[in-house]
Design a protein around this nucleic acid. Structure first.
Lengths: 153, 153
DNA sequence: TCTATTTACGTGCATATACTCCTATTATGA
DNA sequence: TCATAATAGGAGTATATGCACGTAAATAGA
């Protein structure tokens, strides 16, 4: 026989197990830890690798525009740029519209990105292999759908 | 005809688009923003709601054990507990093993969790509806698989 | 033209995340 | 028993995230 408390405990356990937000964040933590570890030799965190690659593929790009592409708050992007600027990997210059700032990679930023890509390829392949190609494709597809449907921007 | 630079740009764009880590984090940001907004009336962030619910379903539980269940670094959990302790929602007491600390909800913690559950139910339902039930189930399943296969703990 | 609004961005503040190094307690095994 | 190893946890440091509020530049409209 179950006490009322036990029933509530089970209920709350179900909530945690079913929470879309919790499961996404949990999976993010697991995968981020893998990528951070794999990218260590390059001196980049996973987030920083993403930023450099995104800038590389869109430069010159303004802060607001890039932040929307990344589904990231504008101010978060600004702060995430700081360590990259300190390292001399990203150049931030005023745009033609004096309100804006445009981002681009420096030569040294391009270099570190190139090194990081080797390690990225390895860990990405490892993840695809571990999940199985079919599962990985399903994951990416459903994440894209989720972003598309729930993205506030 | 494409220049070498254009080709590289496309390549890097593909990398960002296909990166497992980037897509998971991006989706996490989108969904977390939704849940944070929905839970605002309760005074909880999404992460804090998760923590309270997890403690509620496992109390009394030690820090290390809970951190493993959440796929979260032990020290991260310790720090995430601080605001919850300050608010008087979580009680931290030494365990029988004097090295450990056991976590449990206070009466006030149980109360705020109950209020938050109402809002959680709403936003969770909204997400399921927006994605479509089938897609949502697929998302949860593939996230579970990902966590299971890639979880370092 | 000139004012009001919109847009782009930064800062202060708070929480989230994890690595490294450290202490205290428990367990092990010679 | 006692020294050593293993375990649980905390503090310092750094990055990641986003809200509220404020400033400067561009735009719209009278």
């Amino acid at each position: 026989m179950n006490s009322g408390k036990t029933i509530h405990r089970k209920k709350r356990s179900q909530i945690v197990q079913n929470c879309t937000c919790f499961n996404l964040r949990k999976a993010s933590r697991a995968v981020t830890q893998l990528f951070d570890e794999a990218l260590k030799p390059s001196g980049l965190y996973a987030t920083q690798f993403t930023l450099l690659a995104a800038i590389s593929s869109q430069e010159p790009v303004t802060i607001t525009k890039l932040s929307q592409a990344l589904v990231m708050d504008r101010t978060t992007l600004t702060r995430n740029l700081n360590p990259l600027q300190k390292e001399g990997w990203v150049e931030v210059v005023p745009g033609e519209d004096k309100r804006t700032k445009t981002l681009s990679l420096t030569r040294s930023g391009t270099k570190v990105l190139k090194v990081a890509m080797t390690h990225w390829n390895q860990v990405q392949s490892q993840v695809v292999k571990t999940l199985g190609t079919g599962n990985w494709e399903e994951l990416l597809n459903i994440l894209s759908l989720t972003i598309k449907k729930l993205n506030p921007y």
